[in-house]
């Protein structure tokens, strides 16, 4: 059974609501998002107050913090790391690179972000259960916190798809 039903995800989210262990996965980013991830641990933001802890192995992780545009070189390692994570796989995609490939979205040595990676993961039988995208270049520590709370269902999503016809003057 590949599909994890939404009920299970809701249950899993409830289980980790007070204790979220995160693993940081860099797929070739410029480090700006990565130092902001670290910054979120430090006194001014202190994500440990939400029970969030950075762990050293994807096996321990409840959530993966994903940065970078996925370079060709890092791709196999990235796939392998995500595969090593137990289900349900919850992923917080951080920064412009992770979401849309960033400024180098179409170069020869990047994949252009998480969407393409998700396809490759699926081809390799690795399912991802839930993804939250956190824009920013780099993401502010507060934005990371907000994204995490959104993943846990503790805040409402503000971004909505907008489509407006330019006014008739």
């Amino acid at each position: 059974m590949l599909e994890v039903s939404s009920v299970n995800i809701a249950k899993a989210l409830r289980a980790i609501k007070k204790s979220v262990w995160v693993y940081h996965l860099n797929s070739g980013s410029c480090n700006a998002c990565d130092i902001e991830v670290l910054d979120a641990l430090t006194p001014y933001f202190d994500v440990e107050r939400f029970g969030i802890k950075l762990v050293g192995s994807p096996r321990h992780a409840d959530v993966i913090l994903f940065t970078g545009p996925v370079t060709r070189e890092s791709l196999p390692k990235v796939v392998k790391t995500i595969k090593a994570m137990p289900r349900p796989r919850l992923i917080l995609v951080l920064g412009s690179c992770g979401i849309g490939g960033g400024i180098w979205w179409d170069t020869y040595s990047t994949l252009g972000g998480f969407k393409k990676l998700e396809e490759i993961l699926r081809e390799n039988g690795v399912e991802v259960d839930r993804v939250v995208y956190v824009p920013g270049c780099p993401v502010r520590p507060e934005a990371i916190i907000y994204g995490m709370l959104l993943l846990l269902g503790l805040v409402e999503q503000k971004s909505k798809r907008v489509e407006v016809v330019a006014s008739e003057g």
């Binding site: 693993y23 940081h24 996965l25 860099n26 797929s27 070739g28 480090n31 990565d34 130092i35 991830v37 670290l38 950075l54 762990v55 050293g56 192995s57 994807p58 096996r59 940065t67 890092s74 390692k77 990235v78 392998k80 790391t81 595969k83 090593a84």
Partner: peptide, 13 residues
């Protein structure tokens, strides 16, 4: 464990 280029404390592959 993935013998990938990832390290817990430091964040560049």
């Amino acid at each position: 464990i993935p013998v990938g280029p990832y390290h817990p404390a430091l964040h560049e592959p």
